[in-house]
Every structure is written in C-alpha cells, then in structure tokens.
Design a protein around this nucleic acid. Structure first.
Lengths: 148, 148
DNA sequence: GTATTCGCTTGCATTATGCAAGTTATTTTC
DNA sequence: GAAAATAACTTGCATAATGCAAGCGAATAC
C-alpha cells in the first residue's frame, strides 16, 4: 500500500492520500472522540477490523499525519497522535460534516442532530478552531507529562 | 455497489458516500475542468477506466449529486451535470486543495503551483464562490438552450 | 507464575479497482 | 443511403483493498 500520485493536480493528489473509507474516519476519532490507542480505535462505533486499522495507522504515519509514541513507564500501550499536518485536516472534516448535515439527511435520516451539529451550523470557523485548540491543549498536557 | 451507512456520525456518513478514489475527482473535473460527457471524463489526465467511470456515474446519479441529460437534437451524447447537492461539494474540494498545497509538497514536489493556486491561497472564500458562480452560469446557459 | 490485556499478524472470503477488448446505437461522410 | 466513425457503454479477467475470525508474543496485573 505504497503512496502513488495519479497526476500533479492538488485536488486529485489530496484524494490519492485521503481517498478511502478509513483514514479521515480515524482522524475524526482522534480529533473529536479523543481516541489515541489501538484499542480505542477498535472499540469505535465504526467497527474497523484490526488488520485494516494496523495497515492504515502505518500508512498515516508514513504520510506524516500521525506519530506513534508511548506514555512514560508504559511499554505496552502505543499512543497515536495527530501531527500539524494531521491537525490541518480539520477544515476538511468540518466541510464533510456540513455537507452531510445539509444534503445527506434525505438518504440517511438518522444522522445525529444534536448540540454539536447546532454549533457547527451556527459558526463553522469557531467550530473548527475550537477543535484544533482543544487538541493542541491535549498535546501540550501529554508532552508536559513526558518531560516532567 | 449500493449505499450503506456505517453509523449515524455525520463525518463518517459523508465518507460512506465520498470516501473513494474517484467520486470527488469526477466532481472536480466537472466543476473546474468543465467536463460533462462520458468521453470528456475518459480523456482526463487521471485516466479513469471506462467500467469504473460508468459505475461511479451511476452511483453519483443515485446519490443525487449529478443528473444525466442530453442536448436538444442529440441522442448520442449524454451530459452529466452537477446538482445543487453536487455543487455543495465545492468547499470540500477547496479544503482538499488547500491541504495539498500546504502539506503535500514534501511528498509530491511536482504538484502544480500556478495562478489558480495563488488565487486559492489569497482568498479561499472568493475562490469557492467564483467556482460555484461560474458553474451556475454554465447551467443557466444550457437550460436556456434546451428551452429556446 | 498465571491470567489478562494490548497490539498486533495471518489466512481466507468478498468487494473495489484496473486493463483490454467487444458491442450497440447514433451521427457523419461521401 | 451505405460505410465509416464516434459516443457510451458492457464484459471478462487480473490485481488490490477491505472484511472477518482466529491466533500470537510481549508487557502488565494479580
């Protein structure tokens, strides 16, 4: 599953990397649901198979949107964290959700429609920057723990 | 290739529909490169195979992001046009290209870097609305011809 | 030191994608 | 108006991606 590019178009090249069923879902789980370990991902409602998960995490690391780390004094559990390159996918996710909210409800009426979606509708930019800010805060806390 | 949804998450549901190698590329070709016939798509630089193209166009029509029409007095050539639901994918495409421009050049140095990318960088919102406006104009001209 | 948990890998089935050739209906050319 | 060209596909077959279930080794918990 090496990375190849079909051509020099920026749109197409983004889809050469992100155009599959799982990568952006995994990013969403990290960014919004706070998932960070292999086990976390396997327990998500999307129910990804462990072999696919393993392959995708490897690819995402190669591409540079996540890094693999550990907590101090724990050799068992791996932590997968978004890099800046991965965090920069937030606006794409937000636009995807916006499109779902507006245009997918006819095909899929049970799409969630709660508080968070309300926030998204009211101020997309704020929603985006809030997500990024929250994740960066989490990263800061983790790196403090690792050094302290 | 029927449409199924993994869960009720708006992010994941968008990817249930759009999460593949081709659909958003085809939308890009319609929106930006003005492609509209089966032949147009087969002649693109991305070089999609005709069987895949056929399957994807069918799916896109089922999902409601394109419609299949014809020009008056021409039974041979089919026209594929974006619906409102399809045009609403523009912001997603723009965010994908923005991410490519900022974060994919290290992996893929020959990504185009011309005038259009410059415009995108300088004013993303203007770039988006300009694309939508231009496409709507095209639609208006076509529908005028069909009635006149 | 035994059991459990975590992070995988492996084997096999199914679905998606890719290539090349063929088919049918329509239009163009002469 | 018959022959050639064109547009829009379909079909058959190969490869790659995804999906399911079971297993396995290292680290941790008891």
């Amino acid at each position: 599953m090496r990375q190849d590019f079909r051509c020099n178009c920026p749109f197409t090249s983004a889809l050469d990397v992100l155009g599959d069923k799982w990568i952006l879902v995994i990013v969403k789980q990290m960014l919004i649901e706070g998932k960070e370990t292999f086990k976390d991902f396997t327990e998500s409602e999307e129910a990804i198979a462990t072999n696919i998960l393993s392959a995708k995490l490897k690819l995402m690391e190669e591409v540079g949107i996540i890094i693999k780390t550990q907590r101090p004094h724990n050799k068992k559990t791996n932590l997968y964290l978004l890099t800046d390159k991965g965090l920069a996918l937030t606006p794409i996710l937000v636009e995807l959700a916006t499109w779902s909210d507006k245009h997918l409800r006819d095909l899929h009426p049970t799409i969630v429609n709660g508080e968070a979606v309300e926030l998204l509708r009211n101020d997309k930019a704020a929603f985006t920057s809030e997500l990024e800010k929250k994740y960066r805060k989490k990263l800061a806390i983790l790196s403090k723990r690792n050094s302290g």
